[in-house]
């Protein structure tokens, strides 16, 4: 028996260090300036709330705030699926004064381009949200229970890496800032047709989120963010998607797919860079999707 003490000691030490590490990382999560930490701290008060996947990062906050004079928050994340976006938006609405407008890029309604496993990467936020906790328990039970056994496991994700990265700095300028490569420009004709794959459930989740925001008194704007001009013919069934969303939400989706025409304003086929983001935000203001502080005061 004496020879087996080291096993118990190893497990005990691992558990102790796990809990101590978990406490430390929970503190970092709480103090971080990353968007979701701010969300769950209730410190992300904003007039305009943006949501989307990586394309939603085109809502470049510094310029949006400069252009409108209003405070913004952005809940977008690479590969964001609607079943995660909806609880995040609802949690935001529950913890803050409802924003004046919620702008959502609907191209996240696409099962092929969304990251189905992103939900479990939000494990470290699950203690702060019943909705996230339920999502994890239902969709990723192994990860959920592993997170209960090892607290460090909750922080084993890229989302936590970003939480840590933005511990002491703002994430508001997060944007894909590069210029599309000449190779990609030349190769655009060889690209496969982009079709939006979605089901009724995804549309219903979006509609539920829209309704929840509207009940809180928030105006909701559904938009399609810009695509690289030569890539637009490769987009297959966008009109069908927009029609289905219109039926489900009663809102007409504003299509800005060709709002930016300069090729150097893109990082790749689906993402504008900083130049493109600014051009796009100008268009959103022109179209009345985003109001300016002066315009609101005049009203």
């Amino acid at each position: 028996m004496k020879k087996s003490y080291w096993i118990f000691a190893t497990i005990l030490l691992a558990l102790l260090l796990d809990r101590a590490g978990g406490l430390l990382l929970a503190k970092i999560t709480k103090d971080s300036q990353f968007r979701y930490s701010q969300l769950y701290n209730g410190k992300e008060e904003a007039d305009i709330l943006f949501v989307g996947n990586s394309r939603g990062l085109s809502f470049y906050q510094p310029y949006a705030e400069e252009k409108t004079g209003l405070k913004t928050a952005n809940l977008s994340y690479n590969g964001m699926p609607i079943n995660l976006a909806a609880p995040l938006v609802m949690d935001y609405l529950d913890r803050h004064q409802p924003p004046k407008v919620l702008v959502m890029d609907v191209s996240l309604i696409d099962s092929q381009r969304m990251d189905n496993k992103l939900g479990y990467q939000f494990n470290h936020y699950s203690p702060y949200s019943q909705r996230l906790s339920d999502l994890l328990k239902n969709k990723f039970p192994n990860d959920y229970y592993a997170g209960l056994i090892s607290h460090l496991y909750r922080y084993n994700s890229e989302v936590f890496q970003r939480t840590f990265y933005y511990w002491k700095k703002s994430d508001k300028d997060w944007l894909l800032d590069r210029v599309i490569s000449p190779n990609m420009m030349e190769d655009v004709d060889n690209q496969k047709l982009l079709r939006f794959n979605y089901d009724k459930n995804m549309v219903a989740q979006l509609a539920e989120m829209v309704k929840y925001a509207q009940q809180k008194g928030t105006r909701v704007e559904l938009v399609v963010n810009p695509y690289y001009p030569a890539f637009i013919p490769k987009i297959g069934n966008l009109d069908t998607l927009l029609g289905d969303l219109n039926t489900a939400t009663g809102l007409s989706v504003k299509n800005f797919e060709n709002a930016v025409t300069q090729t150097e304003a893109f990082g790749d086929y689906q993402h504008v860079n900083k130049v493109g983001a600014k051009l796009y935000l100008d268009k959103l203001v022109e179209a009345g999707v985003l109001e300016t502080k002066t315009g609101m005061n005049q009203q």
Binding site: W6, Y155, N156
Partner: peptide, 22 residues
């Protein structure tokens, strides 16, 4: 044994914090 306990516990923690499973 003391080194063993620390080393093995560290490996377990590295697995929990960095490991990709499934």
């Amino acid at each position: 044994p003391s080194f063993r306990v620390v080393a093995y516990a560290t490996l377990l923690l590295l697995l929990a914090f960095f490991g990709s499973f499934g």
